[in-house]
Computed example of a mutant assay.
Amino acid sequence: MKRPTYGPAEPLAVVGGRLATGLLDVTSDLAALDSEGFWVVVAPFEGDATCARFETVRPAKPWTGVRWQGPQRDSWRTSLDADGFEAGVRAIRDVIAAGGVYQVNLTRRLSAPAHPGMSIPALGAALAQGNPAPFSAVVHLPDHGVHVASASPELFLGRDGARVWSSPIKGTAATPDGFLAKDTAENIMIVDLVRNDLGRVCRPGTVTVPGLLDLEPHPGLFHLVSTVSGHLRDDAGWPELIDATFPPGSVTGAPKLASLEQIRRLETAPRGVYCGGVGWVDADRRQGELNVAIRTFWIEDDELHLGTGGGITYDSDPAGEWAETELKAANLLRVVSGEVR
Results as ranks from 00 to 15, higher is better:
194 V>P: 07
21 T>V: 08
19 L>V: 11
312 I>F: 02
88 G>M: 10
121 P>V: 04
241 L>P: 11
249 G>I: 12
218 H>V: 15
341 R>G: 04
186 E>Q: 01
131 N>S: 07
340 V>D: 06
306 L>E: 06
167 S>T: 03
279 G>N: 05
52 A>S: 03
94 D>I: 02
76 W>Y: 13
114 A>L: 06
129 Q>T: 13
195 R>S: 09
267 E>P: 08
316 S>T: 06
92 I>V: 15
102 Y>W: 12
340 V>C: 09
4 P>N: 12
319 A>K: 15
338 G>L: 15
180 L>H: 14
277 G>R: 12
107 T>I: 00
185 A>T: 01
147 H>R: 12
185 A>M: 04
65 G>Y: 03
210 P>K: 11
221 L>W: 12
239 P>M: 13
306 L>A: 11
68 W>E: 11
203 R>S: 15
292 V>L: 10
277 G>V: 14
261 E>N: 06
184 T>C: 00
19 L>Y: 01
236 A>V: 09
216 E>T: 09
228 V>K: 06
291 N>E: 06
287 Q>M: 15
263 I>D: 14
128 A>G: 07
149 A>P: 07
268 T>R: 08
229 S>G: 04
234 D>V: 11
263 I>K: 04
207 V>L: 13
127 L>C: 12
189 M>T: 00
146 V>Q: 10
107 T>L: 00
236 A>S: 14
170 K>A: 00
49 A>T: 13
47 G>N: 08
231 H>C: 13
327 L>W: 01
166 S>H: 02
142 P>N: 14
275 C>V: 13
234 D>M: 09
3 R>I: 14
134 P>F: 06
118 M>P: 13
323 A>D: 12
57 V>M: 04
152 S>R: 14
244 A>Q: 05
134 P>G: 05
225 V>H: 00
93 R>K: 13
262 Q>Y: 06
50 T>W: 05
27 T>D: 10
216 E>N: 00
306 L>D: 05
20 A>K: 08
109 R>I: 05
324 E>D: 08
95 V>I: 04
301 D>W: 11
313 T>W: 00
316 S>M: 06
21 T>R: 15
291 N>V: 03
315 D>R: 05
206 T>A: 13
207 V>H: 15
141 L>Y: 01
61 K>T: 00
56 T>H: 13
192 D>K: 03
253 G>N: 05
224 L>R: 05
295 R>H: 02
165 W>E: 00
241 L>A: 05
164 V>Y: 08
289 E>H: 11
340 V>A: 02
289 E>T: 10
57 V>Q: 02
194 V>M: 04
104 V>M: 04
220 G>E: 03
121 P>N: 08
276 G>V: 14
270 P>E: 14
42 V>D: 10
299 I>V: 12
285 R>L: 15
246 F>D: 02
312 I>N: 00
291 N>G: 08
259 S>Y: 01
27 T>Y: 10
91 A>Y: 13
61 K>I: 00
16 G>I: 09
19 L>H: 03
326 E>N: 06
9 A>L: 13
207 V>A: 06
167 S>Y: 00
107 T>H: 13
25 D>L: 03
131 N>L: 07
323 A>V: 08
11 P>R: 08
330 A>W: 11
340 V>S: 03
53 R>M: 01
131 N>T: 03
97 A>F: 10
119 S>T: 09
249 G>H: 01
219 P>A: 09
